[in-house]
Design a protein around this nucleic acid. Structure first.
Lengths: 140, 140
DNA sequence: TATCCATATGCAACATTGTTGCACAAAATT
DNA sequence: AATTTTGTGCAACAATGTTGCATATGGATA
């Protein structure tokens, strides 16, 4: 996406359109999948937008808080961030490749799934992660 | 559970019934929920069975490999271990409390849920995590 | 356009969680 | 009992994420 458009995205929400945010959002929007902090860092560096580690952590946190990105937990204890899916906020089905860790978002979940909590428990959110092999790892 | 019985569990599978394993398994079996490494460590120490951090990591890995325990990833980037549910290996619905992080296993998943992967992707396992509040946190 | 202030950034230090290598101890096997 | 195999503890390291603080900067205001 054009940086102009990304700046616009931020300004529409009355948020500061700093270079760090624009570049980070650009990386997330361009990726076809959820990226780790490290992957974002490398991607930024490759594009000549080197950011401090801490700044990137804070920028990613910021984007998540402002609902411009989505933080999801994988099987490898590292957060992954995605700006792709602005799907309904309460049900996030993901696919996670056992081969390479690639993570991406699938379609909506059927809320009917989320029933049968024990007495006294309250529901907030459901997350379904399907593990398997992505096309690349299927062939390897 | 009695230590005798736990030793039996291990020996039936031709595994060495070391004190570290028996004590760790005991802690996991007695807990009504999945425990973090740290929680297991504390629980062991409280029972006078202090274990080295590394030994505990390795013991937990061992139990998972031998299918005596189950490792699950939470929202806080730390593994949790449970010896409770020897439910079907391919679908693990969990409940995770947003208040205190307590994690426990719910009933079986309907495998029909796991359909609709994009072309080229292969299925291995599904994990559904429901977030919400446990009874204690609901009242607090 | 120049000034100013809230806030974003970078740096250093730290915290947490998990891993690796190696020497020693304990179990199992003979 | 001796030997082999495996488990344990210690030290050091690695990866991921956090906190405090000084400085730089975006964007509102004059």
């Amino acid at each position: 996406m054009l940086h102009m458009d990304i700046q616009q995205m931020l300004k529409e929400r009355r948020l500061r359109a700093t270079p760090a945010r624009v570049a980070t959002l650009d990386v997330l929007l361009s990726a076809g999948r959820a990226l780790t902090h490290h992957e974002v860092e490398e991607s930024l560096a490759a594009a000549g937008n080197r950011l401090d580690r801490v700044t990137l952590y804070r920028t990613l946190d910021f984007l998540v808080e402002e609902d411009l990105a989505h933080r999801l937990s994988g099987e490898d204890r590292t957060w992954r961030f995605s700006a792709q899916d602005k799907r309904s906020g309460h049900a996030h089905p993901h696919f996670c490749c056992s081969g390479c860790g690639a993570t991406l978002c699938l379609g909506d979940l059927n809320p009917a799934m989320v029933v049968g909590l024990p007495e006294g428990y309250s529901f907030q959110q459901a997350e379904l992660t399907i593990r398997g092999l992505c096309p690349a790892c299927n062939h390897a």
